[in-house]
């Protein structure tokens, strides 16, 4: 068995609106259109990934929130319906997915050995959160790859962003170590928006794009700053400013997803490919791919 490798890392935001607007057969509500700039960004991502061989998607989701450490999906197969608790009118998705439990256990173990609190989730009745499902669906709508599902730890609220980031540095490193030992080729998904202040009302027709724009200019400026750093390969600077960004842009990076991914990628210095940016109910979202030239 050869050495495993993380072959790409993706900033893969999870607004359920994007799945709603795609009208896949798995989702009950149907839309006319909507949020094309982001849906086309995901199309470009899928075209890019179609040139890449990989075995597993590892997704770190803000919407599986745990406060006692980091948890990992530990059941081989899940089949049920996921209803978004915030947007149930848009997302009622019938999922049928496979989990690479062996790899999940390896990451869980590596993280524990590095001093993190970890736990495998073995309850077969557990429902998969919509963050995990949306990011995975938009990246790989065929669902022909198993996933590893990782919860987001609430340490940013319990302590602060610096504590959370210190934990995510370790989790990223443990992920890389476990992947290398597994011999598998893996794509990472950081399932989060950038700025994340929502509007608190929604138009009668949710896909009426005349209502869609960034919640506030401050958020937009911060989003552009972060994307500029991504494009210039300055990932260490991203984590350096992430505490300020998270606070000032109410960013969903408080989940630790992006920090985990950048750490697992060993803080890339090569430029990321920005497939697109758009807003969803006021939040800022970018689809961004990190892939080394020689992969």
């Amino acid at each position: 068995m050869g050495k495993g490798k993380i072959v790409a890392g993706i900033l893969a935001p999870h607004p359920p609106h994007l799945v709603y607007a795609e009208n896949p057969p798995q989702n009950e509500p149907k839309a006319e259109c909507g949020w094309e700039s982001l849906r086309w960004a995901y199309e470009r991502l899928r075209r890019s990934l179609s040139t890449l061989e990989y075995d597993v998607l590892i997704v770190h989701s803000p919407h599986w929130r745990t406060n006692s450490g980091t948890h990992f999906l530990g059941v081989p197969h899940f089949k049920s319906i996921s209803v978004d608790p915030v947007f149930p009118n848009l997302f009622r998705y019938h999922y049928d997915l496979k989990v690479d439990v062996d790899l999940a256990e390896k990451i869980c173990q590596a993280a524990a050995q590095d001093g993190l609190e970890t736990q495998m989730m073995r309850n077969k009745d557990f429902r998969i959160d919509y963050g995990t499902i949306v990011s995975c669906h938009l990246t790989n709508p065929e669902w022909n790859k198993p996933i590893v599902g990782i919860s987001s730890c609430g340490a940013a609220r319990y302590f602060n962003m610096d504590v959370l980031q210190a934990m995510m540095f370790k989790l990223g490193k443990a992920t890389r170590k476990a992947v290398e030992e597994s011999g598998k080729r893996v794509v990472l998904l950081s399932s989060n928006s950038l700025s994340h202040r929502h509007f608190t009302s929604e138009p009668e027709l949710p896909e009426d794009m005349s209502h869609e724009h960034i919640n506030n200019h401050n958020q937009y400026i911060w989003d552009m700053k972060m994307i500029d750093l991504m494009k210039r390969g300055r990932s260490k600077e991203i984590v350096d400013v992430l505490t300020d960004f998270t606070e000032q842009a109410t960013a969903e990076t408080d989940s630790g997803s992006l920090t985990w991914m950048l750490s697992a990628l060993d803080f890339p210095t090569y430029p990321a490919e920005v497939h697109g940016y758009g807003t969803v109910i006021g939040t800022g979202n970018a689809v961004v791919e990190w892939r080394e030239a020689n992969v």
């Binding site: 599986w64 929130r65 745990t66 406060n67 006692s68 948890h71 736990q119 989730m121 073995r122 309850n123 009745d125 557990f126 429902r127 959160d129 919860s151």
Partner: peptide, 13 residues
Amino acid sequence: WVHVDDEFHALGS
């Protein structure tokens, strides 16, 4: 439904 808590899933359904 059969409910499972996000955090305390090990306790059961």
